Computed example of a mutant assay.
Amino acid sequence: MRYDKAVIVAWAAEKDSSMDRDIWSGLTVFAQIVEAGSFAGAAKRMGVSASALSHAMRALEARLDIRLLNRTTRSLAPTDAGEVLLARLQPAMASVEHVLGELDSVRSRPVGRVRVNAHKPAAAYLILPRLPVFSRDHPDVSIDLTVDDGLVDIVAERFDCGVRHEQALQGDMISVRISNPLTLIFVASPAYLDLHGHPDNPEDLHRHRCISYRHATSGALHRWEFEHNGVRTERAVPASFVTNDVDIMHDAALAGLGICCLLLEQAEAHVRSGDLVEIMPGWAPALPPCHLYYSSKRQPTTAFRAFLEAMRKF
C-alpha cells in the first residue's frame, strides 16, 4: 500500500480540518517505517535520509506525547499504541487512495510517474527503444527505470510494474506479453578463434574457454542451453570468465576472453563489422518472450495504462 502525503492530508481534512498538517506528514513517515521494517528501508523508498525520518518520528511522538515505535540497534516494531494507531489509520488510507485512483482514471491526459523494474536486456532492447515515442505522446509522464537482473518483489519495493521472462513472474500478478522470443547467438572474437579454433557443436566446448553468467539472485552459474533440430538440451561448460552483468559478457567476448552467448541485438553490429564471429550456427536457443507484470490488487493510474499500451506494441 502507498502512504502518499496527499492521501493522509485528504483523510485528515475529512476527519478534522483544524488538525496540524505536520502530524499527518509524520504519520506518513510512521507508516512507511513500519511497512519497510527499518528507517533505512523507508528512507530508500521515500528518497530521503534515514536521519530525516528519525527526526520526523521524534517530532511526531513528541507532538502526540506517546511512543509509537520500539527501536533498538537490531530491531524495530510498533508499540501497542502504534499498533492501535495503524489499525485505525490503514483502512481509511486505503479508502482514500482508492478514491484518488478513481479520480485519476477520469483524467483526459496521463500525468505522473511510472516506476519500472526490468532486467538489463529488457531495459536496453525493449523498453528504451519505445520511450522516445512514448515521451513525445505523453510529455507529462516520467519513467523511473531500475535495471535489476535479480528477482524483485515489486509490491514490497513499490514498483508499478516489472519486466521478466514468464517463468520468473511473481504470483498474483497480471502479466502482458511485450516481446517475441529473444534470439540468441554464440560468438567469439577473431583473435580467440585464431588461437583456439572453431567449435562445430556443444561437444567441442570442453576444450574451449567460455564466458558465463552468474545469476544475481541465486548466485548459481548459468548452464548453457542449446537447441538443434527442435531438440533442446543444456550443459555446464568450462567457465574461464564469470560475471553477473550481460554487458560485461559482451565486452569480454570483444576482448577475446572466450566464447559467449549473447542476445542477437547485442552482437549483430559487431558480427557485421567482423569484431565478433558467429559460431555453432543452428545451435543457439531462443529466450522466452518478456512479460510486463503488475499487481492485480493495485488500481492502475492513467500514466501506467498509457505506458502499458506503449509496451504492448511490438
Rank of each mutant, 00 (worst) to 15 (best):
S18K: 15
I66Q: 14
R136D: 07
A220H: 08
L276N: 03
I174N: 14
H208C: 13
L64F: 08
A94C: 09
H98M: 05
Y213A: 08
L76N: 02
A40C: 09
D200W: 05
A62H: 09
G162D: 10
L60R: 04
C210V: 10
R71M: 10
E265T: 10
A87S: 15
E157G: 03
F307E: 05
V114E: 08
D65Q: 07
K44A: 15
R223D: 09
G41V: 04
A6Y: 13
V152Q: 01
L254N: 05
V187T: 07
K44D: 15
T146W: 00
N244Y: 01
R58P: 03
P199Q: 02
D144M: 11
L89G: 09
E166C: 10
R74N: 09
G47T: 10
A62P: 04
R113H: 02
M1D: 09
A122W: 08
A303K: 04
F304L: 00
S240A: 12
T301A: 07
G47F: 03
V106N: 06
V106A: 12
T72M: 08
A94K: 13
C261F: 00
F134Y: 02
V155M: 12
S95H: 10
A92D: 10
H291A: 05
V246T: 14
S38W: 06
R209C: 12
L262V: 06
V7S: 15
D245C: 07
T73N: 14
L68R: 02
K313N: 13
S189G: 06
E227W: 00
S38T: 11
A52D: 12
H270R: 15
F134D: 02
C290K: 04
K120I: 04
L85E: 07
L76G: 07
V106P: 08
H291N: 09
R312V: 04
